[in-house]
Design a protein around this nucleic acid. Sequence first.
DNA 1: GTTTGGGTTTGCGTTTCGACAAATATTGAA
DNA 2: TTCAATATTTGTCGAAACGCAAACCCAAAC
Lengths: 233, 233
Amino acid sequence: MSLLDASLIADVPPFYGIEREKLIALLSMAGSERYEKDRTIFSQGEEAHSFFLLLDGHIRVVRVTPDGDQVIARYISSGEIFGIAHAMGLENYPANAVAAVDCVVLSWSGSLWKTITEKYPTFATNTYKTVGARLQDTQDRVVELATERVEQRVATAILKLANQTGRKTEEGILIDFPISRQDISEMTGTTLHTVSRLLSAWENAGLVKSGRKKITLIEGHKLALIAAGDHNK
Amino acid sequence: MSLLDASLIADVPPFYGIEREKLIALLSMAGSERYEKDRTIFSQGEEAHSFFLLLDGHIRVVRVTPDGDQVIARYISSGEIFGIAHAMGLENYPANAVAAVDCVVLSWSGSLWKTITEKYPTFATNTYKTVGARLQDTQDRVVELATERVEQRVATAILKLANQTGRKTEEGILIDFPISRQDISEMTGTTLHTVSRLLSAWENAGLVKSGRKKITLIEGHKLALIAAGDHNK
DNA sequence: GTTTGGGTTTGCGTTTCGACAAATATTGAA
DNA sequence: TTCAATATTTGTCGAAACGCAAACCCAAAC
């Protein structure tokens, strides 16, 4: 709670069309906590006791398979809710949530869901809207994995990241948190080796500039062509 | 409406824990229609004017990519709701819905959503639960596509179909609607050729028995081993 | 400054699976 | 019954991408 001080509240963006006073009331029902980079917010299989709003930072949502493979379900950016299994009638979290950078997170006990949605109906509506959008997004990924080649998928992933979290620099659009080749391979269903080869090739062609856990998008248009499946070498 | 006669209502299964009388009131707000095999109920991109309950039959939900590839998102079985884009705040249907066999379908105008959920709160809750389950299911498919080989995915798909819609025969469990090699390839992100080869192999090994648009599961256990990734030839 | 460890690059052999092609089987309609 | 349309099987070939291995590079810690 102590983190919910004036300076933080001042930063809270308009959220789900809830008026400012109501919003503050809503936020005051939440606990807040800082999570340093790489700390786990909740774990796959764990009972879904709370739901969350990310105030600041980036969170990686990861599924782990029985034989240890990891698949990144999505990245959460600040302003988004997450861990809403409870609202969808799920007993347990279906994935791990890990801070990709230092984060500030609000959390409400799941038992408050009913109270909150009754008091702030737009909160419920918008949550369901978010879930609908995520379902569609996930369907898109199924289609992508089922029909596109690795090269296209990696290009799409980088474009999406640049869109979602990109920060303009003088060189181009920098993905605003540390992301490794391994991470990208876990987003796209390939290996870090293949991602590395692709990035090298794209770097040679001047489409991107990349370093250790760092990618800057230079020629978005050209990468978009690759994502769309242009068959030119 | 005319199809909602006594004989049909007699067949309506318990649904979402709504009591029988209320349920009949709810159903009487719906239009009902028969769709013969292969007819389209709604199309991808079309405005999401209604939501639906499948009373009888099987429906294929298909996404079409810009370059004409098809991906089967899911099969809907009788008793399930579908086309609920509206409830999730989507303007348009994100996929095509096509009758896989002759079907009986109830539909409500999207504008009734508010009225209905207010009057029958369990209907809303259970719809969201369904969406939650489908989101999880879709995530599972992403993980599958990202980490498993074609053989495993096809095995999983057949097991799921047998579970969802299987009918016991003296030979084994028959998938209860016509399904082609092409269909299975569109569920698993491969080609009909590969599916054909796999089914042939499995038929030789006595795991399944298959014909034109027809698959019977014989040795579920063994197929489950393949789905799990057993590396024995 | 040096060391250590994680991240990245790159080469090479191998496997999986898609693409193309053609033959064959099955069903429904004429 | 025959024919046409559709579905399935099977073979061959080649490309895409994985697995393994080794080298390299960079950043933070000592």
